[in-house]
Write a protein that binds this DNA or RNA. Structure first.
Length: 350
DNA sequence: TAACCGTGGCT
DNA sequence: TAGCCAAGGTT
């Protein structure tokens, strides 16, 4: 174990990346970076971190923002609950905790959006506390090097990895150790690794047993469900209409065009004749326009089949009060899912 | 516990 | 190409 730590530590000194959040120990910035990076690659999250840190330099700035503003800045990053929890927690710290970020593992973990990993990461990086941060990278490194075959998505497996990780941390400063482990997993011990180039290839269990591709073990394979979204693009000369997603579902809090969900790739006639359609507009006062092809937008647990159906509408079209009218320029101020953003960008709005 | 929550890059 | 999976958390 000492050999393992020495190699990892030395490797980290030579290979660590220069990342924006490594230039500070401000708990707020560390917290912000950890939330952004949950289930997110460094390359994808870095520019978001920079924009958030510039726009909201302190917890108070973030707390004073509107949720709309926070979601707009988060647009495109996915898992939007992270943004809503980040904002809600900033408000809580600002109003109920004297603006001070909690400084113990237990208190940090109580915050919304912060689980075992994130609490350990913040506790170690911002406060130097000896808590092992076990993320996807660490599971991969530990399972391979030490030959741990317990499933990483089971409660007992998580416990076993956490315990091993915690034993390892005692030999190095916690903030260095945790980041070294993660960086090693992110750059060297990747899913399809270059083992001949690995400094641990002389003592790695998985390599000697030819099990690199089998570790770590996962037991649950997510099931994907198909959904069919018909987006109604209601157009006047200068404006269109949006609705906000308020149900407990994907993209909660984001905006989109009025949506009619069907159980299959149904016919447009079926859409126009539906009660849902009648609730949005008066069918007798709209003119059917372009219909896009069906496209698919894969999510982690759903495959969204979607298309856009344009309608020319007028003042007598009976547009539902629940829809939000926006001129075509201001539509860019709304936080929207990726597939809506792509549609808007690809259709030139004058 | 198992299902759910986005997006993008890699193979 | 289709599947994997990434600085996970909540219900």
């Amino acid at each position: 174990m000492q050999h393992f730590n020495q190699i990892i530590h030395a490797w980290y000194r030579h290979n660590k990346r220069d990342l924006p959040w490594r230039q500070t120990t401000d708990p707020y910035k560390i917290w912000l970076s950890e939330i952004i990076l949950q289930q997110t690659r460094i390359e994808q999250g870095t520019s978001y971190f920079v924009r958030f840190a510039e726009t909201f330099p302190t917890i108070k700035h973030l707390a004073n923002a509107s949720e709309e503003e926070v979601l707009k800045l988060w647009q495109g990053l996915g898992y939007y609950t992270r943004a809503r929890n980040l904002h809600a927690t900033a408000k809580k710290i600002s109003t109920e905790m004297n603006g001070l970020f909690p400084n113990t593992y237990e208190d940090i973990k109580k915050l919304r959006g912060i689980g075992d990993y994130t609490a350990a990461a913040i506790a170690s990086i911002a406060f130097g506390l000896p808590h092992a941060a076990v993320d996807g990278n660490v599971y991969r490194v530990l399972s391979r090097y030490f030959g741990i075959q317990a499933p990483i998505d089971s409660a007992s497996g998580k416990k076993e990895f956490k315990q091993l990780a915690q034993e390892l941390i005692s030999e190095m400063p916690p903030h260095i150790h945790n980041q070294a482990m993660m960086e090693f997993g992110a750059l060297q011990c990747v899913p399809a690794p270059d083992c001949p180039a690995c400094p641990l290839n002389g003592s790695c269990y998985a390599l000697t047993k030819n099990m690199v591709a089998q570790l770590p073990v996962k037991q649950n394979k997510p099931k994907v469900r198909n959904r069919y979204f018909n987006y109604l693009v209601l157009l006047t000369n200068e404006s269109t209409y949006l609705s906000r997603r308020t149900q407990k579902d994907i993209w909660l809090g984001l905006y989109e065009f009025p949506l009619i969900e069907t159980s299959s790739r149904s016919d447009v006639c079926h859409i126009v004749e539906s009660d849902e359609f009648r609730n949005f507009v008066n069918p007798e006062h709209v003119i059917l326009g372009d219909i896009s092809n069906w496209e698919t937008h894969p999510l982690s647990h759903q495959r969204i089949h979607y298309r856009f159906i344009k309608f020319a509408v007028g003042k007598e079209s009976g547009i539902s009060e629940t829809l939000i009218r926006t001129n075509k320029k201001d539509i860019f101020n709304f936080a929207v899912p990726r597939l809506i953003e792509t549609f808007i960008n690809d259709n030139i709005w004058e």
